[in-house]
Amino acid sequence: MTVKTTLSFTDRHHRFLSEKVGQGVFATQSAAVAAALEQMMQDEEERGIALSALAQEIRARMETPREAFIGQDDAFAAARATIGAARGA
């Protein structure tokens, strides 16, 4: 289903849309706006997934007993070794 609506753009945005249509990137300005909205929707979904995964990881780490914690020297030892090797140290 298609819904007709009226949108207002700044001169800069209108010029950009017109250029993209003129270059053949999009068939119409409506198609360009629809593509931008689809990208925004995908970005929002991906951000939600990432935040959910981050929250899940934080919860899991909060349940880790203190005895299982590792010190920062141990945690970053591999990274430091890799950086040192790359620097020729």
Rank of each mutant, 00 (worst) to 15 (best):
M1W: 07
M1F: 11
M1A: 09
M1V: 12
T2N: 13
V3D: 11
K4L: 10
K4A: 15
T5I: 10
T6Y: 04
T6L: 07
T6I: 10
T6E: 12
L7N: 05
L7R: 03
L7I: 13
S8D: 09
S8P: 02
F9L: 09
F9K: 00
T10W: 05
T10E: 12
T10H: 03
D11F: 02
R12E: 14
H13N: 13
H14E: 04
R15G: 08
F16Y: 10
F16P: 00
L17W: 06
L17F: 04
L17G: 09
S18M: 07
E19Q: 14
E19G: 10
E19H: 08
K20S: 14
V21F: 07
V21T: 11
G22D: 10
Q23S: 11
Q23Y: 06
G24D: 01
G24R: 07
G24K: 07
V25P: 04
V25T: 12
V25F: 09
V25H: 14
T28Y: 04
T28W: 05
Q29M: 14
S30Q: 04
A31C: 07
A32V: 01
V33C: 01
A34M: 10
A35S: 06
A35V: 00
A36T: 01
A36H: 09
A36Q: 09
A36L: 10
L37I: 11
L37W: 09
L37T: 03
E38F: 05
Q39M: 11
M40G: 05
M40I: 12
M40Y: 14
M40D: 10
M41F: 12
M41G: 03
Q42Y: 11
Q42P: 00
D43C: 05
D43E: 15
E44Y: 15
E46M: 09
R47K: 13
G48C: 02
I49N: 03
I49W: 06
A50D: 00
A50L: 12
L51M: 06
L51R: 08
L51C: 06
S52I: 00
A53E: 14
L54Q: 04
A55F: 03
A55E: 15
E57V: 02
I58Q: 04
R59K: 08
A60H: 05
A60N: 14
A60C: 04
R61L: 06
R61M: 02
R61W: 02
M62T: 08
E63T: 09
E63G: 03
E63H: 11
E63M: 03
P65A: 01
P65G: 01
P65V: 11
R66N: 04
E67D: 08
E67L: 02
A68Q: 07
I70H: 05
I70P: 01
G71Q: 02
D73S: 12
D73K: 12
D73W: 12
D74S: 11
D74T: 08
A75Q: 11
A75V: 06
F76I: 05
F76Y: 08
F76T: 11
A77K: 10
A77P: 00
A78E: 15
R80K: 07
R80M: 10
A81V: 09
A81K: 06
T82A: 15
I83M: 11
I83N: 02
G84S: 01
A85N: 07
A85Q: 12
A86I: 06
A86P: 00
R87F: 03
R87V: 05
G88K: 01
A89L: 13
A89S: 08
A89G: 15
